[in-house]
Every structure is written in C-alpha cells, then in structure tokens.
Design a protein around this nucleic acid. Structure first.
Lengths: 188, 188
DNA sequence: CGCATTCTTTACCGATCGGTACACACAGTT
DNA sequence: AACTGTGTGTACCGATCGGTAAAGAATGCG
C-alpha cells in the first residue's frame, strides 16, 4: 500500500465546518472540494457513499467527541458535580462561546433529519441520559426533567445567539443553567 | 383588471410549510410549484424576486402573526400575567405542540441567516423585548434575563422535540418555563 | 529496481437547479 | 365586441447539481 497517511480525519474536520456553515443541501460538492482541498476523485475515494457518507462521518466524529469529552465523564466520574461543571466548560469551548453552531441541532430542524434520524436521536438522548444520571448522583431532585431542560436550553441558546448575532447570549445561558442546578460549591 | 382574487396569501401559507419542511436550499422551485399548486409562471408573477422574495414574504407573514397574537398583547395588555399566559398558549398552538418547527430559528442556523439577518434578528428581539416588558410590569425581578431565557428555551425545545421525535418534550418545556416565572395565580 | 496499491486529476454524465420569455387564457370595463 | 391588464402554461436558458470512469501520479514493499 502507499501513502496511507490518514488525511481522512483532516477531511472530516473540514467537512464538519462546511456542513455547519452551509447545511446539508447547501454544502455542494464544489464548495466541499474547495474547503477540504480535495478533488472530487479523492472525496469519492475516501467517501464512496458520497455526500451522505461524508455527513455521516461528521456526525459520527461529533458524537465520538462528545462521548469522550462529556458523556463518559458524566457517567463515570465519581465526583458528579465536577463532571457536570466540566460539561459546561467543554460545551462552552466546543461551541466557541456561541460562535459555532450545533450541526446536529441544525440537521434536526431540516428534512435531513429523516436521513440521519438514528444518529441525531442518539446524540441528544445520550447527552440527556448521561446528564440525568450525573444529576441523580449529585442529589438533584428531578434529574430527568432538569437534564432535558439543560440540553434543550443549550440548543436554544445557540439558535438565539446566532439569530441576534450575539454570542454573549450563549455564555449567559450556560451560566444561568449551571447556577440554576444548585450544585454544591466546587470546594465542598 | 381581472381575477384579482388574492391567491397570494394562500400561496404564502403553502410556502411557509414548504420552507419549514425543506429549508431554504432544499425547497426547490419544482417542489414549491407542486405544493402551492402554482406553475412557475404564476409564482414569478406573484413573487418577481423569485425564491428570495417568497421566503421574505413568509418571514414577514410569520412576524406579522406573532406581532398580532403575541407581541402586541404582551406590550399593551393591562393584565401582564394574563398576556404572558396567553403567549404560552398561542406558542403551543402555533407550533402544534412541538410538531411544527420554527422557520425563523431554522433559518438562523443556516447560511440563509445572512440573507434575512434583519428579519430574523427582528423577530427574536421583538419577542424578547415584548416579553421583558410584560415581565417587568408583572413584577418580575430580572425581566430581561428571564425573557431571554424563555425565548431561547422555546427554540431549544423545538429543536430537541424534533431531534428525538417526541413533541411532548416541547409541551413539558412550555409548562416548566411558565411555572418557572412564578406568575400570580390566574384568579388573583 | 519492479510492482501493487493508494490517491489524484480530469473529463464527462444526465438531471435538476433558479430564472426568463412569451404566447395565451381569462375577466372587467367600455 | 374590442380593449386592457391579471394570471398561467410551456418551452427554454446557462449553470450547477451529485456522481462516475478511467488514466496517471505518487508511494511503500518485495
């Protein structure tokens, strides 16, 4: 074999930004080629399934990142409040304090949802359930309700932040949600 | 003049559903023609500006509806808590208890945002400000914060409801938000 | 080196895109 | 009935869509 350099991961990262920016329909192969630096031939070499496989790879990569950085800690970390605080930090970082959009959420709103229904559902369900578990361990009274609220409010904050073009909306929302959970003080 | 039947409003209503379902890019003129029952000729007669004017008309119609049914009451109704409760009722009805998507929110997430930035920003800003005013009149302690939270959480609930394909998520969110505001009991 | 495999380039495909041109059907007015 | 302006059907435009085919360049292994 030759040149088994894994450019695919790099391509997936670039693809993520393209889909985030243009949406599924809006991301034409020409802009994809331009932004990834790969020709159509290379793209179809890495992703024989075409656009659908590209978007699928992006969604898988996103879910993998959240699983590692957020869901797993929420599930496994002994110090549940710390894991929850970490979730807020990682979320803020991932979404660039409101300057970045949630691709999964954006897909959920469009007709593409049907195509990736399982992945989209899985992403949010895993988040909600992992957070609910951590909240329960942290002694929260209504962990399921609260978890659903937090996950959904984060999405809404991303929508509103972009709608009014003010990332601060997102930052405020995260702070509000975190303090609203009434977690014990970090050093307690 | 002849046949000045106003089919344009009907067309706008149909257009709204098409854009909601397919998004801006995804709504091709062929599906628009099919769903409105109008040929290309008629469409370009009513909307000389093409797709962009169609989407603009839809956004204007949506904003008009909310202005009449929600924002104006929030601003003018003497009984502020009643206006707020009415907002939740109308919102639930408009979004079909979570089965319908917010077109403005969906547009906000995509690249189309730039094209309709003013309209999108205006829609959310008007909602937030009208609600903040009503909350202040209702004696709420932090009306701006609370209003931003409610508007954003409603959007998030629509995203999550569609993502996990469970409209109940939206209904629960509305109830949670309304009770969270601590409004005086209806008969007080 | 030779060779197999991986990757890229390029040209091309039919279909569909948004949009235009224009002839024509219809309805009021006179 | 002739005229006028609104609405519609249809054919067409160049551009771009997502996707394919295949020849060739680059690379690691023997």
């Amino acid at each position: 074999m030759a040149r088994t350099v894994n450019e695919r991961p790099d391509a997936v990262a670039a693809l993520a930004e393209v889909f985030r920016e243009y949406g599924y329909e809006g991301a034409s192969l020409s802009v994809i080629a331009a932004r990834t630096g790969l020709g159509k031939g290379s793209l179809y070499h890495f992703f024989p399934g075409g656009k659908e496989e590209m978007a699928g790879a992006v969604l898988a990569e996103i879910e993998g990142w959240f699983e590692r950085a957020v869901y797993a800690p929420l599930r496994e970390e002994a110090d549940a409040p710390a894991a929850i605080r970490r979730m807020f930090r990682e979320t803020d970082a991932y979404f660039r304090s409101g300057r970045r959009v949630c691709l999964v959420g954006a897909f959920a709103l469009g007709e593409v949802r049907d195509r990736f229904a399982a992945r989209i559902d899985g992403y949010f369900a895993a988040w909600r359930d992992a957070l609910a578990g951590a909240l329960r361990r942290a002694g929260h009274g209504e962990p399921e309700e609260a978890a659903e609220h937090v996950v959904s409010a984060i999405q809404g904050a991303l929508v509103l932040a972009r709608a009014v073009d003010d990332p601060a909306v997102f930052v405020r929302a995260l702070r509000r949600l975190e303090t609203g959970l009434g977690l014990p003080a970090p050093g307690a």
